[in-house]
Simulated assay, not measured.
Amino acid sequence: MKLKAAQLSNHLKRQGLSPIYLLTGDEPLQMMECADILRSFARQQGFNERVVLSVESKYDWENLEEQADSFSLFANKRLLEIRLGAHSPGTDGTKALIAYSDKPPPDAILLITTDKLDTKKQKTKWFKILSERSVLIQIWPLNVSELPGWITQRMRQSGLQASPEAINIIAERAEGHLLACTQEIEKLHLLYGKGQIDTAQVLDAVVDSARFDVFNWVDTVLTGDVPRFVRQLQGLQAEGVEVIVVAWALNKEIRNLCYMTYTLQSGQSIAQILKTYRIWARRQNAISRAIKRYSKPQRWRQFLRDTVQIDRMIKGLESGNPWDELQQLSLQIAGVKLFS
């Protein structure tokens, strides 16, 4: 069974506990809070003992078998947690997890937490079987459009209200970092107590703690949101992200758009191209807008040549500031006309 993180509380109240839960994602706050909801509900149901198994390299999976075999009629109810993190179970782990799921102990709940699993990892034997035999909760980062609503709800829980402008400031300054966003809301509550928070108070109290993802920046460039992607690029530079990584991500997307626009000239529609190139739903708007802005492959080939020049700057083969050149190139991709 698949659930969204927001559905877990109501699901537990209606359906009770299931033997196995698989929690995966790369957004720390939602992962932490989702696991806390499950732990709290399990304690209420008498699962007072908690055993944590942290998987490292060369992990001995017999530990799971020993924990499963240790249950008896007189044992305490236990919550077993297997923390995979970025590790794969491997052959031994796959056998152990499948064996456990074949016959889960009656007085145990198993919670498996793992980092975000890409498409390749979701095709592995252990994931396929466990996802069918467990409650699967996949955590996704919030979209920019979802963040103001999330902040409004979070503030309401703390007894705070704020204008849309104040909420947008919080969203902008804590974008991509929900834990920092939560901390800023708690800070506002401590400083001003319950009630209405105005823009001046937010500007005075909330620090700029945004965390940006390189690929999210690329999508913002393709969408054409100039103020946001300029700020994202500055954030990446300030955080010490290697410029070669940023340039590589943009080069990769431009190269893909060269292929897509060639396909467009062959008569396929944008919708067909998105399907052919397996563009997932959350990126389709950004890709579509980029193709509509520049529908001819010649333009994307020129952008590709620009990335080659930036690469030469990064390697010291040509003079210039690659960060400045990346900003100028991204402005052009977004449709901004620059002076010569």
Rank of each mutant, 00 (worst) to 15 (best):
L236V: 09
P19S: 13
Q265H: 11
D311R: 09
S269F: 07
W150C: 08
S163I: 07
A171G: 06
R278K: 15
S319Y: 09
A96L: 07
K116R: 15
N321L: 08
R289C: 04
D107G: 00
E172T: 11
K292A: 07
K128N: 10
A290Q: 05
P164I: 10
A180N: 09
Q284E: 12
Q44H: 06
Y277F: 13
A249W: 00
L203V: 01
T307E: 04
P104E: 08
R228C: 04
E132N: 13
V221S: 02
N251C: 04
P227D: 09
E146G: 02
F74W: 11
D118K: 10
H177R: 08
F74P: 02
N168F: 04
I98Y: 01
V51L: 13
R312Y: 10
N63R: 14
S163H: 08
V336K: 12
S72A: 05
G240C: 07
I287V: 15
F71Q: 13
I139K: 04
A86P: 01
A5Q: 12
G335Y: 10
G46A: 11
R283Q: 08
I37G: 00
A42M: 02
V221T: 02
P322M: 13
D213E: 13
E165P: 00
V226P: 05
L79Q: 06
P104W: 08
D219N: 14
S70T: 10
C34D: 07
W150N: 07
Q138H: 07
A6N: 10
T263D: 14
D225Y: 12
L117W: 10
Q272M: 10
C34H: 01
N216I: 01
A108C: 12
S101R: 09
M31N: 11
N76E: 15
L222S: 11
K2D: 13
L29Q: 11
L326I: 04
M155W: 06
S145L: 08
R278Q: 14
K58Y: 13
L84Q: 05
N256L: 14
M155R: 07
A171I: 02
S158R: 12
L191V: 13
S163N: 09
P104T: 09
I137F: 06
R293E: 06
T94Q: 15
V55C: 04
P104L: 08
E253W: 01
W280K: 07
S295E: 11
Y21R: 09
A162N: 09
